[in-house]
């Protein structure tokens, strides 16, 4: 009986020693139970100044862009190889000439561009004129040092186009407004608003598969064939340099 209180004191002493460990383990169980909420939140708070900034996002975006460009080049090379095998005109564009725009009228009666190179540089009537966004228009007349382009929006402009998703041809007519009119050759073209319009993949006059615009609205009741309004991808009022196909 004499050793009783002494033994209890010893046990309490040991318990006091191990209690912090129990407390720690308990806390860790709490952290585990909360999926590390407190721990991760504290970590986030402390490391916030070192988080990746906007510059790192731009590096990643730049890397993504370069990757896309490389992919496009590879796919284009592959596409050209297949086209050669099928004896279809190549969509590669080694015979393009870069030309400055020296005068422009994108609104009004005549919607045209005057280019700073002409027949001396190899530009001929009927050549396709391209800019960022795709096809801009067709060369209508040339002088030795200039060329005049009829924009796709100009009245009288007629270009054969292709809706890839529905696999249907149509004629893109310039009507003076910013959105040319696409007249389909088929009575039921099965196109919807949002379809991309491009030059025909089998075109021999224009470069094949060149983006032109996006269908904005469709009038299926129009006679003799449905018509659509097309929003062009290129912006002739803001382009200072264009690419012209040499023939």
């Amino acid at each position: 009986m004499a050793g009783g209180p002494k033994l209890v004191g010893l046990r309490l002493h040991h318990l006091r020693k191990v209690l912090p460990f129990f407390f720690l383990v308990g806390c860790l169980f709490l952290v585990r139970w909360s999926k590390g909420a407190f721990f991760v939140d504290t970590y986030a708070l402390i490391t916030r100044p070192f988080w990746p900034g906007s510059s790192q996002r731009e590096w990643l975006q730049y890397g993504d862009l370069v990757e896309s460009q490389v992919m496009v080049d590879l796919l284009q090379a592959d596409n050209n190889r297949l086209r050669r095998m099928l004896a279809i005109k190549s969509s590669s564009t080694p015979d393009l000439v870069s030309v400055p725009v020296i005068a422009r009228k994108s609104n009004g009666w005549w919607q045209q561009l005057e280019l700073g190179k002409g027949s001396v540089a190899g530009i001929q009537i009927g050549a396709a004129v391209m800019g960022p966004g795709g096809l801009l228009g067709i060369v209508e007349s040339v002088t030795p040092s200039t060329a005049r382009v009829r924009l796709l929006t100009a009245p009288g402009s007629r270009v054969g186009v292709w809706v890839n998703r529905a696999k249907h041809h149509g004629i893109l007519l310039g009507i003076g407004t910013n959105r040319p009119q696409l007249t389909f050759l088929d009575k039921d073209p099965k196109v919807i608003a949002g379809d991309v319009v491009s030059t025909s993949p089998a075109s021999t006059i224009l470069p094949p598969n060149l983006p032109v615009g996006v269908i904005q609205s469709l009038d299926k009741k129009a006679l003799p064939a449905p018509i659509a309004s097309v929003q062009l991808l290129s912006a002739p009022e803001a382009i200072d340099w264009v690419q012209v196909q040499k023939r």
């Binding site: 009288g156 003076g176 407004t177």
Partner: peptide
């Protein structure tokens, strides 16, 4: 001058949807 141009465009491009064509012409 505008009316004379409109008449010429109108006669040359009869296949164009008139409603859209007219609104653009008169705006010009």
């Amino acid at each position: 001058v505008g009316i004379s141009l409109w008449l010429q465009f109108y006669l040359r491009h009869l296949q164009i949807s008139f409603e859209i064509f007219h609104s653009w012409s008169f705006q010009t």
